[in-house]
Every structure is written in C-alpha cells, then in structure tokens.
Design a protein around this nucleic acid. Structure first.
Lengths: 206, 206
DNA sequence: GTCTATAATTTGATAGAC
DNA sequence: GTCTATCAAATTATAGAC
C-alpha cells in the first residue's frame, strides 16, 4: 500500500467509526450502507471504494470488536498476580469495557451465532482455550493447596463472564426489573462491579 | 372470529411454527418471509393473508417468546416454598426452557434493544417489577432474620439470571473456551444447572 | 383458502464525471 | 478520492385466478 494523504486516511477512519456505530447498534442484517454513509457524512460509493462490500466492512468491524472484547482477558490472564487479584481485575476491566459500549457483548454473541463459518473461525484463531487454560490451572492449584473451596474452574469462569456480561446484554430487562432510568443504570453497574467480585471471592473461601 | 375448519387452523399454526423457527434463528432483520414460507411448505402470499405483514407476524412470535421466557418465573415467584427452593426451581426451570431452544434468550435480548418502542412497552405490560418484588421482599426478610448473609437482593437476582442465561447467550464462546462439541455441551449445561444453585445457596449461608 | 404472477420498494453495488 | 446517477438483485406486499 502506498503512502496515504491525510484526507484519504480521514475518510477511511470516518467510515470505520460510522460503521462501528451502526453495526453495533443494528447488527449485520439490520445495518444499512446508507445509514453508515449518513453517519460518516459521506456517500455510499465511498464505502465501497474503501471496503469493497458490506460484508468486508462488517468483518473489519467485527474482528476489531472481538479483539476489544477479549484483549483485556489475555493480558490479565498472563499477569503475575494472585488468583483473587485476577478475578477482581477481570471483572472490573470487562465491565469497564462494556460500560463504554453497552451493545458490545450482545453484538458479538449475536453475530457469532449468525455466521458460524467466518466468525467462529476467528474465535478459534484467538485460541480461546489457551487463554483460559492458565486460569484453570491456577484455580486447580489453589484447590489442591486447600486455599480455596473445591470448585469446578469451568463453571467458576463461566459464572464470572456471565455476571459481568449479562447486565449489559439484558439491559432492558434489568431496567424493567429494577425500574432504572439511564442515570440510575450507571450507578447500578458500578455497584454491581463490586458486588460480583465480592460474590465470587466469598464463594471461594474455604 | 368464526369457527375455523381444520385446514385453516393447520395453515395458521404451520406458519407460526415456521416463523418462530426462522425469527428465533435470524432475528427480525435477518429473517425472510420466503424462508418462513419454505419452512412452512406454503407460499408467501398465505403469510400475508393470515398475518398481514412481516412486522405483525414478528410481533406475534415475539410476544409469545416473552411469555415463554418469563412465565416460569411468575409461577415460581408466587409458589408457597422456601427461598432456597425458589432459587433452585428458578435456575432449573429457566435452564430447561432455554435448553429446549438455545437462541431464545439472545433473541429476546437482541430484539428488546432493537425496538424500544413496541418491545419495551410489552415489557412494562408484563410488570416485571412486580414479578420481582416478592423475591426481593423474601430475601430482605431472610436477611433480617439472620438466616442468610446480608446481600443486596437486586444483584443477587441479576446474578441468578446471568448465570442461567449466559451459557446459552454465549454458547459459541463457551464452546471455544472449553472445547465442547454439541453433545458435550448438553452435559455441560446439566452440570452447570447444579453448580449454579449450589454456588448461589453457598454464597448465602451466613 | 391457496396458489401464481407481479407490482412496489428497498438496498447493495457500480459507472462515470470531476 | 469523491461525488451523482443509476443498475441489478432482493424482498415485502398485493392482485387476481382457482
């Protein structure tokens, strides 16, 4: 690829930002190229000029969203800290990430089940299993040492992901249940962050 | 409405069954009337004859899915059983419901965020808050009696929903993390059912 | 009620001027 | 690179025969 002028780069970026917003909001099937063009204050033709097709543009956005979602985990998993610290960090970081974009988790989960071919392949490329292996080994080690209760690390980890992700995935349900408007919702999430860490760590104490 | 002949009723029902399957799988935006017609082994025109428009057909399916999803809860909430029994029943029943249709929770959550107008109104009509109030009061009562730890019932209930719903919502991620094929997945869910009840009830013991 | 054929609209994609 | 105008395909919806 050749050196790009500033204007070129700006259009490319503007399109990506607009596409991210529209795809996150509406999903692949619901998003319209015209919506993205409007959001970017450009015309449809330019979207195709830079990204060829809706599908290609979507894949760019989706890949990026996956990284955004799972990168925190990768880092924390490999950090030289205690298991309890890892749990607290995982919960806090994941919630913060989703808090900056409430639709992120449901977007990812929904698209993953829509396109098993290309999306699931990307999951395998991220080597989810290796990402998790370190956590599992540490839990098993702590169990053997008798420092925490005997738990199944698979279910423990799934529960952690569940309690951090679900409040965003089920946002309308949560708002209905607890009668929360947009502002009260933010406060609720902040409480929840602390509650989840405490909940998990409490449950591990022998 | 007049008395229907058998053949009429059959077509109506065949359409509903087909629509449920296609909408659940692809969502409102991704579903095609032609797919539904094919699935029902009928022609598109009949779908419009019975349900007027795609939107109307969808609303019928969505309303039904909402009831399916939240009806269990309603019943269990009002049953004359102990708090621990309620928790066990809620977890077991909700997981069983979703196990019969893995896409049910993500379908509901996704569509709820897509159409705040009509879908969210339906949520309010179901009076989610009242559904939950009984549970909250019971938790607070048990806390006062000192029978369970001092917990925030909102987060407790949200965590319960999270741990039951997330394994289905994030099915591809779970399969990637724990290297599960379709069969191993069913077994995993059965284990999870027991694990979640134990996890919650353990966490409540003073 | 059920079908075939077709209208009407939407939407992804391209051609071609600048 | 960016735009306007337009095409081609897909898709919802309807008309009308049976």
């Amino acid at each position: 690829m050749e050196v790009k002028e500033l204007k070129d780069k700006n259009a490319e970026v503007k399109i990506l930002d607009a596409a991210r917003k529209v795809f996150l909001e509406k999903g692949l099937a619901g998003a319209r190229m015209q919506d993205i063009a409007n959001e970017a204050c450009l015309n449809k033709a330019l979207l195709h000029y830079y990204y060829r097709s809706k599908e290609k543009l979507f894949q760019t956005i989706f890949q990026d969203a996956l990284l955004n979602f799972f990168n925190n985990m990768q880092e924390i998993m490999n950090a030289p800290i205690s298991l309890f610290e890892k749990i607290e960090l995982l919960v806090a970081k994941e919630i913060d990430t989703m808090n900056s974009c409430h639709r992120l988790p449901i977007f990812i989960m929904n698209e993953l089940t829509q396109d098993p071919d290309s999306c699931l392949m990307k999951m395998k490329n991220m080597e989810m299993h290796k990402l998790y292996a370190k956590f599992r080994d540490e839990v098993e080690a702590e169990v053997k040492k008798g420092r925490i209760k005997k738990v199944n690390p698979d279910h423990l980890f799934l529960n952690l992901l569940a309690m951090t992700g679900y409040p965003f995935i089920a946002k309308p349900v949560v708002q209905g249940l607890f009668e929360l408007e947009e502002e009260g919702y933010s406060d609720f999430i902040e409480q929840h962050k602390k509650d989840v860490s405490r909940f998990i760590i409490d449950s591990l104490k022998p």
